Amino acid sequence: MALADPETTRRLLVCPRCRSGLTDTTGGLNCTVSTCAYRSPGAFPMAGRWPVLVDFERSVVDCGEAVRTADRTDTARPGPAGGADALPALLRRVFKPPNRIAAQNVDLLLRSLPGPAPTLLVVGGATVGNGVNAAYHDPRVQVIGFDIVGSPVTQFIADAHQIPLPSASVDAVLVQAVLEHVLDPHLVVAEIHRVLKGGGLVYAETPFLQQVHAGAHDFTRFTASGHRYLFRRFEELAAGPVAGPGTQLLWSVDHLVRGLTRSALAGRAVRGLMFWLRALDRLVPPEYATDDASALFFLGRRSDRELTAQEIVAYYRGAQVSA
């Protein structure tokens, strides 16, 4: 994998509160500014091998839980794959088909990156997302990943509302199926804009018509226009549905059965039997899919210009025509 080495990542890290430098101390890191609330030695603890760089006074992330979860991850022995990844290849494609849209867009993003060793930041990257494997296997790219939990493909634990990296420090950002799980997605996108270099790239995938899928940590959905306005300080390179109305219907059938039977297993079983609904996405024209998508993507370039309110209203690409 093309993960950035720990020393390279460590040199980039800053205090999430004041964005000043950090120093290593026994038990963790701390801010170098004497007036910062996180100046005490070990203010940012280590959780296994991951520094926990969270402004706990301004985050829903709990310090103790973050450390305990990461410690368990660090000491656990590798086990068999779980969920859809544990199924035979044919069944895996039924329950978790390859995300071809992500693969195409990540390929475009990688080909657009400048220089011999560009840096790609993965926000919410505890696992390698569906369709983005190429980003982790491009020998030219240095991948830096973080999440609120540690994992083999993350280098630190952080809250995306306060990314502990300097401004203009990365060439691209990947944020796949994350923005629905943060309290303030507009603040997170502002942080993404801040850490990107001039002309840096972002690739995002976010749900539109999907049921709650992370319990208490699922907050927000976006229409196509709303998603574009979320990234209003970016020039659009490409945008559209990741999955259309057929996939959205499959989600609804799954959760209808769950509600009727009080069984998630029953819902997943019916979802597997009705996998063919996903194929209907190909029959729906783009303008109708825009209004009924299960999820949406945005690929854009950092800009200093912001879309106006009039421009975002005129942006609408769906099938509903005003009278």
Rank of each mutant, 00 (worst) to 15 (best):
G145E: 07
S112N: 04
D138T: 14
G150V: 06
V182E: 11
V189H: 06
A126M: 03
L165S: 03
V153C: 09
L174R: 10
V170R: 12
K197W: 00
V175A: 15
G131V: 09
V123W: 04
G115S: 05
G115V: 02
Q142E: 15
I163C: 04
G150H: 11
T127G: 02
S112C: 03
P152V: 00
V195E: 06
E180N: 13
V128R: 12
V195A: 06
I157E: 10
A134H: 08
T154S: 14
V173D: 12
I144F: 03
L120Q: 08
D147F: 13
N130H: 01
L121W: 05
P152I: 02
V178E: 13
R140G: 15
V175W: 11
A117G: 09
I157D: 12
S169G: 06
T119M: 14
A126P: 01
A168G: 15
G145L: 12
P166K: 08
P166M: 10
V141Q: 11
L113R: 00
L120R: 07
V173I: 13
I192K: 07
V182S: 05
V178I: 13
D171N: 14
L165G: 04
Q162V: 08
H186F: 15
V141M: 08
E180H: 10
D147P: 09
A177P: 13
P114Q: 00
G145Y: 08
I157Q: 10
D147N: 09
L165D: 06
G129R: 12
A172H: 13
L187K: 14
A160N: 01
L187S: 12
V175Q: 13
A168M: 12
V170P: 05
E180T: 02
E191G: 07
G129Y: 03
L120D: 07
L165P: 05
H186R: 15
V149G: 04
V141H: 11
A134S: 14
H161P: 14
H161F: 03
V170K: 11
H186G: 11
V173T: 11
F146I: 02
G145N: 03
R140C: 13
I157G: 11
